[in-house]
């Protein structure tokens, strides 16, 4: 086979023809960042390329200075001998997948993505590639997501139930993306205000500035002394679970919003009362559907249990393999 356009390096993918890295975990000369989650965006690169919509969150993560170059979705820009385009990945606000055109063919790199609709970000946009490098965080057929509407309904009923019992409803979710998605979905059904953990604030502000419609929010840190949060919904990052911060929510019921909640043992192990299956990643059917939409003849799996998806695709007659990006961290690359 002709040499690959991309190779695992620095915990991400390196493109020699364009001399850039996609989502590197180590400091590099030039980085193309798919989105601002910590396992994709790290400080220390000499130059950052990202989407305009994703820029505020990325600056919050890696620092705001003149090393940033932002691009519109669909806009083609040249890096070295390659032509690069960022397309919407539907994962969080400003998230992208990266298309790289060079003499060695067209490669697509997914970053993280989902196919379900999300009121806080542009929907995934497919575009044909020769090689599709796909995330597979949830790369097993046990991961199939229920309709978003059903899950939001469950969250709302749980909140109503907590109101009836006059206990706080503490909902854990990732501070970037998931929290805003849940809030935006709830805003379509209720005008009740939501309490926020301090870690949520800058990101919620960033979403509001981007024009995403979010419900009224109040900061837990600014609550009056003696506030009992009875029947109120509180959003907090998972790291707050079990911390002294939680003591103010007497007799609370706890929930966690994540694709991992599809498995009962995950919820029980963490001791949440309720698990709500809502993910910003593609489920198994969406991973396969996306492979078809990309019309790629070769599929490389990264992030997650890639062996199962690769094995399945090979049995379907595709060329497929799994790359371990983490291993590239210890290669000294």
């Amino acid at each position: 086979m002709a040499s690959d356009v991309l190779v695992p390096s620095a915990g991400g993918l390196y493109c020699a023809a364009g001399n850039f890295w996609i989502d590197p975990l180590k400091p590099v000369e030039r980085a193309v960042i798919t989105h601002a989650h910590a396992d994709h965006a790290r400080a220390g690169a000499g130059e950052y390329h990202s989407t305009r919509a994703g820029l505020p969150a990325l600056k919050a993560r890696v620092g705001a200075d003149d090393r940033h170059q932002s691009h519109e979705y669909g806009e083609v820009f040249e890096l070295g001998d390659t032509r690069v385009t960022l397309f919407p990945a539907g994962h969080i606000l400003g998230s992208a997948w990266v298309k790289i055109e060079s003499d060695a063919g067209v490669w697509g790199v997914s970053g993280d993505f989902k196919r379900a609709l999300d009121p806080t970000c542009e929907a995934f946009h497919s575009n044909p590639c020769d090689v599709w490098v796909t995330e597979c965080t949830f790369g097993l057929p046990v991961y199939r997501w229920p309709d978003t509407a059903i899950v939001i309904e469950q969250i709302q009923r749980w909140w109503d139930d907590c109101r009836d019992r006059a206990v706080p409803a503490v909902l854990f979710c990732y501070a970037l993306g998931k929290a805003q998605r849940v809030m935006a979905e709830l805003a379509q059904r209720t005008d009740r205000a939501i309490w926020l953990h301090g870690a949520m604030r800058p990101l919620v502000d960033a979403y509001r500035e981007a024009g995403v419609d979010l419900p009224d929010t109040r900061m837990v840190s600014e609550a009056e002394k003696g506030e009992r949060f009875q029947g109120d919904l509180i959003l907090a990052p998972p790291s707050a679970a079990g911390s002294p911060w939680m003591r103010r929510f007497k007799n609370h019921s706890s929930g966690f919003v994540s694709g991992w909640m599809r498995i009962r043992g995950n919820r029980r192990r963490r001791g949440y009362d309720r698990g709500f299956i809502l993910s910003d990643h593609a489920d198994w059917p969406a991973l396969i559907e996306t492979v078809e939409d990309m019309q790629a003849s070769r599929v490389i799996t990264i992030h997650g249990n890639g062996e199962a998806l690769s094995g399945y695709l090979k049995a379907q007659g595709l060329d497929s393999e799994r790359w371990n990006l983490r291993a590239s961290l210890s290669d000294g690359a």
Partner: peptide, 22 residues
Amino acid sequence: PDWLVEESYEHVGDLAETMALL
């Protein structure tokens, strides 16, 4: 395929749940 059912079972850790999910 049966190997994928096995992988899923190994991941979920509960056969009744694996069958319900698949």
